[in-house]
Simulated assay, not measured.
Amino acid sequence: MAYKLPVLPYDYTALEPYISKSTLEFHHDKHHAAYVSKFNAAVQGTDLDNKPIEDVIKAIAGDAEKTGVFNNAAQAWNHTFYWNSMKPNGGGKPTGDLAKKIETDFGSLEKFAEAFKTAGASQFGSGWAWLVLDNGTLKVTKTLNADTPLTHGQVPLLTMDVWEHAYYLDYQNKRPDYIGAFLDNLVSWDFAAQNLAVA
């Protein structure tokens, strides 16, 4: 039961001018596809083959002998989550329960945005910035390489990829510009709200 590479939830040009067609083609069709392919090859014929990818990630996290499997599984999952964390004509402000929760737990949307931008900009090397629910409280966190909040008892609501391949064709070394564009023009508050509702 191979894990399938999901199709993008929007057209390759739908996030322009903030993320180009070229970036999405390389990022989804090459990088994401490679993680999926390597994960499937690694678990084929093992006891992990029939398990949902989230269960595999949690089961093998921290197992030094399965680091390669974990990296590809977590990256496959993280990328799928990332595509859904964005939408055409995104950005703006959250509404409803999510807006209230951000106000309560961060003090304001602006304070959340500041924390999220800092997490993304200060992640040394490759990784991810996240909005998570941690024991009932919203928090901003960051993870290195393939690591994911799934292995830390947290519920991911939203993520931003800060690996260079996510933004380098469009922003070169200006990661803060990409982060600003993500929050102002791309973020899908609807996706985060759905994740909060089912948490």
Rank of each mutant, 00 (worst) to 15 (best):
I60D: 10
A64K: 13
L158E: 07
H31Q: 11
G62F: 01
D105W: 03
Y171A: 06
E65R: 14
V56Y: 03
L157C: 06
N89G: 09
P94W: 14
K4G: 09
A41P: 10
D134C: 02
I53K: 02
L158I: 09
D11A: 14
F112V: 03
M160T: 06
L158Q: 10
L183E: 07
F81Q: 11
V36F: 12
T159D: 12
K30I: 11
Y168N: 09
H31E: 11
M1P: 07
E65Y: 09
A41S: 14
M1Q: 14
V198Q: 10
L150H: 04
L183P: 11
A42F: 03
T95H: 05
E164P: 01
P156G: 07
N72V: 02
A113Q: 04
I102S: 02
H28V: 11
I19Q: 11
G125C: 05
W130C: 05
S20R: 04
H27R: 08
K51G: 02
K58M: 03
K30T: 14
A115I: 04
W130F: 03
F182G: 08
L150G: 00
N72E: 12
W189Y: 14
A146W: 00
P176L: 12
A34C: 04
T23D: 13
P156W: 07
F81E: 06
T151R: 11
A99N: 13
T95A: 06
T148V: 09
I60A: 03
F112P: 07
G107D: 09
P17E: 10
T159W: 04
K4A: 15
L186P: 03
A199G: 15
A199H: 08
W189N: 02
I57W: 01
